[in-house]
Write a protein that binds this DNA or RNA. Structure first.
Lengths: 321, 321
DNA sequence: TTGTAAGCGTTATCAC
DNA sequence: GTGATAACGCTTACAA
């Protein structure tokens, strides 16, 4: 009945006597509103979906923490999905083929989204925000750092401390994903600005940005006739794997080889040596994407915007003599 | 209409002609079944909730990865919530006070659950599985390792490599949570078995099992008149913080102080030195808890069972000369 | 094999 | 201020 709903929802136009009566009945029957029925009626689930490649990658779990917190602050909860680098899974999520889309909006943080994937979202009305991409094409909201500048800052730092043979780990085998392309561009730009030559044998690919990818790539670099004296890794995890490979080869960080990453995950702060990195403001990214998706849920016809999150260089032991 | 539902659900008793017709109409109208309406009718959301203290703690994010995978295999999705050591939040989840309980079952991995909290779940019909606890009281399903034995194995290893002054980090300030109590008991038992004395000044508390907790606790141990020659940490994160404190004090691991943790997170495999630990079979834990909660969703009156997950000692550099 | 109608538990509309 | 009643979009008896 109407009055009960009013009481439950804390509506004002209810007499004190009636409110007390309803409350008593609620207590008596141990009544709990059914959220599903409410959702069917209101059209809002109160849930957001956060889609990441792998939740156990520290950058994503730290991002998830912030997103869950930011969402909780505005009364939303977060469902987490992993695509595991699976294009088919990404497609399902983007097209809404999944049978259980119980959420109001999608925060999509693709490691490997191609533009063509995004085209598929077209017919769906599910609000969507892209995280971590920076190829703004005006169709979807983006929240991301300036990847080119971030990579450039990292390499500039290596140059500033006097390194001249700077390698990079993290380009993708198939060059079709935005993030690695942008970071590669930043690396190239920094070298060019310093009048340094870009050597193809110093550019190593990494499929999953994992510690072991970083380890393997660094091993390959160390085996070169003229090994580098610095390595710029496209993620902190790659950098941690790379550092381990340097030690296993009997060399030292940063003395023989300086290492810098991107992400500023907590693991890097406690690594030995502690890892220099580019810090991404994940609380900012989380807050802004939640704010933005709520606005879009309220008004699906909002114009797409691009939100650039701040980043900054953090110098630690891995790049300081 | 009946037939449409049949087609969508892949029912058999539908004529080919009719099925084609329906499919064409679906395509034409770009029809998508509304999952909320389906849920209201069937009573199943197809979602599980995984509740952990903090998703960015590697052990929990690795567990979450496995739970999401295990759930996906049986057509379920996973909502993740953090309690952040907040008792009020735990209470809400357990009692169903939250207004948006859009899931069929709850996998609850409390760092800090007191028995009294569990009492509150009594009136709720939401299926519940407890993870990581091992104080089986017969009321709820548990999936956990044998914490006492795990701790005992870790300390036995330190004794086996000849250490005699073995400290422990990870007991709780307020001694009311199961996991730390059990791990403390295992530590005590191993020392007693070896005829070693338990020294109160070698037992350090840690509120959040974080790297910085481990760092601070280890610093305190090193400042003792007679510092330990080995530290057993109740989690890998504590151990990683502790190792860093040892290095910052100018000492070496394992030469001066051996360190061992529990969890076997990937970070420990790449740490320097790599971290000895007790490996918990998280894929097993994830698989079994999902299996169990599905059974309980099907039949809420199932008797509570206790599932013990395997664990095993992993010896790495942090405890080998 | 196919169509009709009831009902899941809310919230919103609308008289009173 | 309060009580009936419709509607959200699906699944499923039941009838045809």
């Amino acid at each position: 009945m109407r009055t009960v709903s009013n009481v439950v929802s804390g509506y004002t136009h209810v007499s004190e006597r009636m409110r007390a009566k309803v409350l008593a009945a609620i207590e008596e029957l141990d009544y709990r509103p059914n959220p599903v029925a409410r959702t069917l009626r209101t059209g809002r689930t109160g849930m957001l979906a956060l889609v990441v490649p792998e939740i156990d990658v520290p950058y994503f779990s730290e991002l998830a923490r912030d997103v869950i917190d930011a969402a909780a602050e505005v009364g939303y909860r977060v469902m987490i999905d992993q695509t595991g680098h699976d294009h088919e899974r990404e497609r399902q999520l983007l097209t809404g083929d999944d049978r259980t889309m119980l959420f109001d909006g999608l925060l999509f943080s693709p490691l490997v989204t191609k533009t063509e994937l995004l085209d598929m979202h077209g017919s769906m009305r599910m609000p969507l925000i892209l995280l971590g991409e920076h190829e703004f094409d005006g169709r979807y909201d983006h929240v991301a750092i300036d990847n080119v500048a971030a990579a450039c800052d990292a390499v500039d730092h290596l140059i500033a401390i006097g390194r001249t043979k700077i390698a990079a780990i993290g380009s993708q085998p198939q060059e079709e994903y935005a993030t690695p392309l942008q970071r590669s561009a930043g690396y190239d730009a920094a070298l060019a600005d310093a009048g340094m030559r870009r050597r193809a044998d110093y550019i190593r690919t990494a499929a999953h940005y994992s510690r072991s990818d970083g380890y393997a790539a660094a091993q390959a670099l160390l085996a070169l006739p003229e090994p580098p004296d610095a390595i710029f890794c496209f993620s902190d995890l790659l950098a941690i794997g790379a550092m381990r490979a340097v030690f296993d080869a009997g060399l030292r960080v940063p003395d023989d080889i300086a290492v810098i990453g991107i992400d500023d995950v907590e693991e890097g702060r406690f690594a030995r040596p502690s890892l220099s990195t580019i810090s991404l403001d994940t609380p900012f990214i989380a807050r802004e994407s939640v704010r933005r998706i709520l606005a879009r849920i309220d008004d699906p016809d909002l114009e797409a915007t691009e939100i650039v999150a701040p980043h900054r260089l953090i110098v630690r032991e891995s790049t300081t003599g």
